[in-house]
Design a protein around this nucleic acid. Structure first.
Lengths: 341, 341
DNA sequence: TTGAAAGCGCTAACAA
DNA sequence: TTGTTAGCGCTTTCAA
């Protein structure tokens, strides 16, 4: 043990007890808000603790009481505004409940999902939140074998055996497409994301909206993107090179929509005069583009919050059956779309 | 305690000891890689542990004086590409060393820095990385009182009493300004960030470069931004409204530079034909703007990595005196600047 | 309302 | 090389 450490952790529950003239158990009671402590005693203890700068040692507390206040979060990385928004929600809700967040990245041991999850489950965290867009079936299997509390965020377990939070991807995309149709557009292109559950739903809704309005679904108007800005850019170049180019482009996320805008501008065309653009997510950047992007807002922050709630619920009531929570999306109309006469 | 828990963590060191016919201390030795264990015994213990599915209880280990493999990271939030890049570096280096990352946000208890740090120090993490741009002096004081290992990332402790990693802000800004001067610009504006150490250094370098080339420093060319895109946008509008507007704008970070580009475009001017733009940081977005942004690259990811190294070094050699590591910036020339005839 | 005592699972002297 | 013995700082019975 280093010198450093010794110096830095002097004040224990015993110091407080001695100074306040009570037993350590009493101090413990005070700090656990037990009600069998005389108000006067409690006050004295608190005062002494304050004076001494006492802070509970979490390790000891956990060891003795069995509870950790740490929950894990598994993500591929933190590089997207999408992830940042979800994590903000998680952090907010967690801090309300007095929990800490341990961050795990899939990048770290993608080699062996099974043992990585085992490791996590046996480590300090008492539950796990997963925001893993490319969640492998493998993960899911291991997870349910583990009898370890977890919640899937923005991902769905088709077998309905996991707690999960997502949003109305279908409805959101349907609303957006309908909006474009109402503006008079009939040549509406769609740029897909990676073929995930969420992305597929958006594509389906796009098709459904068109069909419902009697608009032919044209294969050449469905472009394959991968959620990246450059894919939005590239696919737009292709779309606009069509002999009969679309008058509106709906991208499966905002990042691609920004790429779309870049491409359109580069082609010397105007948004929204020449081309209307719609995104999905409503990341912060969406409101700082020029023109401001019309998009489908996913309640990312709230999804994070609800994910935490579901997890804490499991911690408290381990026997409740899995639930799936679906939050509403909302069409945010800004300046990137225009009606066609 | 939940049923779940009982099921999932029964196996202790004692179980292994009993089953392997040794004492608990021996099992402990095996798992701490002490060399005073007979190879044969070690193997037996390991086999039993494997069979029983033993996993060390971190809390207990830490309490007993052992080391945790968790280090903390204190940040204001995860909302910027800047932060994401640093954290990527941290995560990478940490995973190499087999450490986990516990995330703390200043948002959570900004009310009382002192006790929050106390709390962190007494919690499970064994050291702390800080990426806190608006680090208050208060934090620093508490930190050094704590004798708890920590490293400041992209921030400097003027008293030279902390381990820290930063980059050559001054040199980077100097290089960028020189570059613009070499291109023939003499009317160069600078948009500052929040008045932090880093930002101030960039401003000083800008001034020094101008002075050195005999260019008058014009107060009206120094605009006060706050690192946000909208401040870059707003300040540019002001700058361009000047009776003698600048021909080049150097923003103290990339996010503002993007705002600058928006504003210039909105004024119907071209980049780089009418106005040259330079940023600072080289966030991923910088290479996806149109035109691509010329900027000063800060080795953010590497700063994260080096921060981890410094922290681990402290953990291993607690008596080494504080060091400050300054990494080199690099001017990344892309398409947002043009020479003036 | 309080204190004494036991123990959470582990590490680290000290013996053997 | 191994076991024995003390704790680490806390919570929680059980008595008083």
């Amino acid at each position: 043990m280093s010198e450093r450490k010794k110096i830095s952790q002097p004040v224990t529950i015993y110091d407080v007890a001695r100074e306040a003239g009570v037993s350590d158990a009493t101090v413990s009671r005070v700090f656990n808000n037990k009600n069998n402590v005389r108000a006067e005693t409690r006050e004295r203890v608190l005062k002494v603790a304050e004076k001494l700068g006492y802070v509970a040692n979490l390790q000891a507390r956990m060891l003795a009481g069995g509870k950790s206040n740490i929950i894990g979060l598994l993500v591929p990385g933190l590089d997207t505004a999408y992830m940042a928004a979800i994590i903000r929600g998680i952090d907010l809700e967690l801090s309300v409940a007095g929990y800490e967040l341990l961050l795990y990245t899939t990048r770290r041991r993608s080699a062996n999902e099974a043992s990585y999850l085992q490791y996590i489950a046996n480590s300090v965290s008492y539950g796990l939140l997963l925001v893993v867009p490319l969640l492998s079936q493998k993960y899911l299997e291991v997870l349910s074998d583990l009898t370890y509390p977890y919640v899937l965020i923005d991902e769905v377990d088709e077998t309905n055996t996991s707690f999960s939070v997502d949003s109305t991807n279908w409805q959101g995309a349907y609303d957006a497409t309908q909006y474009l149709i109402k503006l008079g557009h009939r040549k509406i292109a769609f740029i897909t994301g990676i073929p995930l559950h969420t992305s597929n739903n958006r594509l389906e809704a796009y098709k459904a909206a068109l069909e419902e309005s009697g608009i032919l679904i044209r294969k050449e108007y469905i472009a394959s993107g991968d959620f990246s800005q450059s894919s939005g850019y590239q696919q737009t170049l292709k779309l606009m090179a069509l002999s009969d180019p679309p008058t509106a482009i709906f991208a499966a996320n905002d990042v691609m929509a920004i790429g779309v805008m870049d491409a359109v501008r580069e082609l010397g065309m105007d948004i929204p005069a020449d081309v209307s653009v719609v995104g999905f997510d409503d990341i912060p950047q969406a409101s700082t583009t020029h023109p401001k992007l019309t998009t489908v807002r996913q309640p990312l922050e709230q999804m994070g919050r609800e994910g935490v709630r579901l997890l804490l619920e499991q911690l408290e009531y381990p026997d409740r059956p899995p639930r799936r929570l679906t939050l509403a999306t909302e069409l945010v109309i800004r300046d990137s779309c225009k009606s066609i006469k």
